[in-house]
Design a protein around this nucleic acid. Structure first.
Length: 775
DNA sequence: CAGTGAGCGAGCTTCCGCTTGACTT
């Protein structure tokens, strides 16, 4: 039995370290926290100085009992959890739970998993820092108190099962407020002037820095340019440079993987986890941009041998975020000379991104020569500007270019172009001059990754929680990630060519979105409720201000119970007051009156989501109801759109003695007939479907289904074999079952099919929970 | 892929941060 037991947080880390330390050390992992507050109400004894009640969760019992056993046998236990608030608390929980003894326990820390760093740590043990532990307890207790007092308020005032918390509620607020900014945004049009001079290879573009708000001014400008002289008025050449970005942290990795590879935040994290467990990269949940000395040296030697010494430039980056805890290194390849890895395509691409970013971070800057030419117009006072850029030395750009969030349209056609040789006073030959109507753009909706970026800037959330937070706000129904179709918009283009001006109207698609975060109505209502009654909690600075106090606790300058008391008492009062006085929040909005009946038309949130109501609840004839459709919201729906909803579902006729009804569902418009669904062909207006057309659609679908059918097993046709997109499969009630390799679908017997259904272990899904009245 | 939409009834829900697998498609 080894004399020493060393405990870290992550099992992959434990493996690596065991290799560094040899036989005298057993290295084990705690798998993160081993204890948490109990789930029940009495987790925190508020009257008794917020005394906490902890328990070892079921899935950690085994880890704890193994560690207990090993600790008993070891001469010395080394607590090597991360050097941050949570890590210190993990060490203390271990100390307490494993019943460790002070003289046989040492606390050590390292920020990088390299042999020298580990050995140095072992040479410099210390004690558990209880100030830091207290800061963690304050954090934990505050989050529990906020979450478990606010959520029940929402259950009472909005809807059951909702949630609120220090982090998620701010994330939702950001999305709700951004959506409102976009909705109230008034786009302004202006004409942008672009000139093309010269021909063929010598051709280049110049722009007018100003834009014209009115078409007549743009037209006047083009008029004036007919037959005008264009002369190079000035020519300026300046050197410019660009420096590489810091190596990845969790948040920047998520952003770049989203922009460059199109990965969702959770996909990036699970791929990174696999790379980490395979030993290809360092730890992927980090807020540090720091590289170890070992890594700096390895990167240097790799760059020198692969690209030459002039491409190397050692750089040490400093974090920009105020509450970074920097317990780990930046995310980097474990070995810089490993240019590619074994793995699936997605893993390879992510590794490639990490490798390039880390290597580039240690490379020299790229050098450019930027040329600006100003071009005067004989008939006008304004000057056109042409920009050219020539790369003199590629530096880090040899391997990596960071992408940006803003798709700036000026950037795309203006920069990175070369100008032909020009001289001052040179007269230019105008090929074409255009005035194109351009529109100012609303702020961009958040993607998962840009939301993470924003949260990090606000100091809200941690590397380990960005991905789960994004899932939570979607799971609660506050936010949806969606594509939305854009709208057609006309814009005008005036062109001066060969001495004459032509006008044209073109169309473009605008406002189309892919994979963006949209608030739902329930998200908006919950947000407004929290902003109204708990402004302090959903304030963007709330986390920053409590973090400051946690820091003071960590430095021993503040008592954690005092801090929590000062927060809790007034907060709890607000909670009680709100429960007592606040009205139920339903986000109700009146749209106007029904043009025929004169009844009130309103929208609000109901048990099953947002809906329109025509008439009052206590009217003699019952009100009519209709649910809102995907993409519609309480806040933006118009009276006309609301009334449209009542035109469907619509009975369009009878076929085979059964009614056909047209309606709009989750997947678009459809015909319902005899409890079967038939999608309408694209482009068909659901209000315009005749009996004849409906019958055609149904017969067409049946014909196609019949072609797919291979074999029917029972009379009700609930079990059959079909030809699917990827080959034959069994339809077993509502479940689809794959036919195993080597089985011929034509010779399968009913018993074999039943066995397959059983093997798959697929019981029909049970319906939602139902309330059973107690007798 | 329906239509539903009051309050009542009983007993549920919920936080943030630190870690991985065990699940299904």
């Amino acid at each position: 039995m080894a004399k020493n037991l060393l405990i870290v947080e992550s099992p992959a880390k434990a493996k690596t370290i065991e290799g560094y330390l040899g036989k005298d050390f057993t290295v084990k992992s705690s798998y993160g926290h081993i204890r948490d507050l109990v789930k029940s109400e009495d987790a925190i004894d508020i009257a008794n100085n917020f005394k906490q009640k902890y328990e070892v969760p079921a899935d950690k019992k085994q880890v704890v009992s193994e560690l207990k056993k090993l600790a008993k046998e070891a001469e010395m236990v080394w607590l090597a959890s991360d050097e941050d608030r949570e890590g210190e608390a993990i060490s203390w929980h271990l100390y307490d739970t494993l019943n460790l003894k002070e003289d046989r326990t040492k606390r050590i820390v390292f920020h990088e998993i390299t042999k020298p760093a580990i050995l140095r740590a072992i040479e410099n043990p210390r004690q558990i820092n209880y100030n830091l532990v207290n800061a963690q307890q304050a954090r934990r207790v505050l989050d529990r108190l906020v979450g478990f007092e606010l959520s029940p308020v929402l259950w009472k005032k909005v809807k059951p099962s909702l949630s609120a918390g220090r982090v998620q509620s701010v994330a939702v607020r950001l999305i709700v407020e951004r959506e409102r900014e976009i909705n109230k945004f008034q786009s302004e049009a202006a004409f942008k002037i672009v000139a093309i001079f010269g021909k063929g290879k010598e051709a280049f573009k110049a722009e007018l820095p100003e834009r014209f708000a009115k078409q007549e001014d743009a037209e006047k400008f083009l008029q004036d340019c007919v037959g005008a002289d264009f002369t190079v008025a000035s020519l300026e050449t300046k050197p410019a440079k660009r420096s590489p970005a810091a190596p990845f942290t969790t948040s920047t990795l998520q952003q770049e993987a989203s922009r460059k590879l199109g990965y969702s935040v959770s996909r990036t994290m699970s791929l990174a986890q696999r790379l980490y467990e395979s030993g290809y990269i360092t730890y992927m949940r980090t807020d540090s941009v720091n590289l170890s000395d070992v890594a700096l040296a390895a990167a240097a030697s790799e760059i020198n041998s692969a690209y030459g010494e002039k491409y190397h430039q050692q750089r040490k980056y400093k974090t920009k975020s105020a509450n970074a805890q920097e317990a780990h290194e930046a995310i980097r390849p474990t070995y810089f000379d490993r240019h590619s890895i074994d793995g699936d395509n997605a893993e390879k691409r992510l590794y490639d991104l990490i490798w390039k970013r880390a290597i580039a971070s240690q490379m020299s800057e790229a050098q450019f020569e930027k040329t600006t030419a100003k071009i005067s117009i004989s008939t006008r006072n304004e000057q056109l500007t042409a920009n050219g850029e020539v790369m003199k030395f590629d530096g880090f750009l040899k391997v990596y270019l960071e992408s940006s969030d803003e798709e700036d349209e000026n950037q795309q056609d203006g920069d990175n172009t070369m100008l032909p040789p020009l001289s001052k006073g040179q007269v230019l030959n105008l090929q074409e001059l255009t005035a194109t109507e351009r529109f100012s753009r609303p702020p961009a909706r958040y993607t998962e990754a840009s939301l993470v970026k924003k949260l990090e800037e606000l100091g809200i959330g941690r590397p380990s929680t960005y991905a789960p937070t994004i899932s939570t706000i979607q799971n609660r129904g506050y936010v949806v990630k969606e594509d939305r179709e854009g709208k057609q918009r006309n814009f005008r283009v005036l062109t001066l060519k060969n001495g004459s001006i032509s006008k044209e109207e073109k169309t473009e698609n605008t406002g189309a979105e892919r994979g963006k975060l949209f608030p739902t109505d329930i998200g908006a209502v919950v947000n407004d409720f929290l902003v109204q009654y708990f402004k302090g909690i959903v304030d963007f600075n709330f986390t920053a201000s409590v973090e400051k106090q946690f820091d003071e606790i960590a430095q021993g300058m503040k008592e954690w119970t005092d801090m929590i008391r000062k927060f809790y008492d007034p907060f709890h009062k607000e909670v009680e007051k709100t429960i007592e006085t606040a009205d139920k929040a339903r986000g109700e909005r009146e749209l106007g009156t029904h043009p025929e009946s004169g009844k009130k038309v309103s929208v609000r949130i109901g048990r099953y989501g947002p809906f329109v109501q025509i008439g009052e609840n206590d009217d003699e004839d019952k009100p009519a109801y209709a649910s809102l459709r995907t993409g519609q919201s309480i806040e933006t729906i118009s009276l006309e759109e609301a009334l449209e909803l009542f035109k469907l579902p619509k009975k369009v006729g009878v076929y085979e003695d059964k009614e056909m009804t047209v309606a709009i569902g989750k997947f678009g418009p459809y015909i319902r007939h005899n409890s079967a669904f038939y999608s309408l062909p694209k482009g068909t207006d659901p209000l315009d479907v005749s009996e004849q057309l409906a019958i055609e659609i149904i017969e067409e679908k049946r014909k196609k289904d019949a072609e797919k059918l291979i074999k029917v097993f029972d009379e009700d046709a609930e079990v059959k074999i079909l030809n699917g997109r990827w080959g034959p499969y069994i339809e077993y009630g509502k479940q689809n079952i794959k036919i195993p390799k080597g089985k011929d679908p034509l010779t399968l017997t009913f018993d074999e099919v039943k066995a397959l259904a059983g093997e798959a272990g697929k019981e029909p899904k049970k319906g939602g929970k139902k309330f059973v009245k107690k007798k």
